[in-house]
């Protein structure tokens, strides 16, 4: 018996998402990593991140954040790059990246709609809000609109419970969003 319409997704989803096989040397060439590989600025930024800690491996999260900011998501090649940057074995970095929920191991849309579904927001109508978004955008949890504009995701408590229902669009908090407001909001997100 499988669960009907779970209020929260089975995330991290059924096992590690299938990623394009990692080419050991991909990161040098892959246009995915263009911005990183070409930009000394980003290289330097990663080095500085490593400098901030007594132990280089502490910089793994900062480095992954930088790469995700630049690429939009974390392809295997990016994980290899991160492993090199902090001197960790590649498999371990893979394990770290998949432990946390905010690293995108698949590409996401320009606007990442992360709707809080935890109790406080749920009490204020998060479930209705999410269904509304599903219908409106025609996508479900973890899916991206064909035009690559929106990715929709159920997430856990965002620490904005007083403003429930709330969501984060990429990093921006949007609180007290009911159906009408969210429609207006979507308009503004090109």
């Amino acid at each position: 018996m499988s669960r009907t319409n779970p209020p929260l997704p089975r995330e991290p989803g059924a096992g590690t998402p299938a990623m394009p096989a990692a080419d050991r040397t991909a990161w040098v060439s892959a246009e995915l990593l263009g911005p990183v590989v070409t930009g000394d600025k980003i290289r330097k930024e990663m080095e500085q991140a490593v400098q901030r800690y007594p132990n280089p491996r502490s910089a793994i999260l900062p480095v992954l954040w930088i790469l995700q900011r630049e690429i939009g998501w974390l392809p295997p090649a990016a994980l290899q790059l991160a492993a090199r940057a902090v001197g960790l074995p590649e498999p371990e970095v893979f394990g770290i990246a998949t432990f946390y929920t905010m690293f995108n191991l698949k590409p996401v849309g320009r606007h990442h709609l992360q709707v809080c579904m935890t109790l406080s927001c749920s009490l204020m109508g998060a479930d209705r809000l999410f269904r509304h978004l599903e219908r409106k955008l025609g996508i479900g949890h973890g899916e991206t609109t064909p035009d690559g504009r929106f990715t929709l995701r159920r997430v856990e408590c965002l620490a904005a419970c007083g403003g429930g229902p709330c969501m984060q669009v990429n990093f921006d908090y949007r609180e007290n969003v009911d159906e009408t407001q969210v429609d207006r909001l979507l308009e503004t997100l090109k």
Binding site: P12, G15, T16, P89, G95, T98, F99
Partner: peptide
Amino acid sequence: DDALTAHQRGVW
């Protein structure tokens, strides 16, 4: 060797 690692978390 560090060839193995744990992916994901929790029951996954």
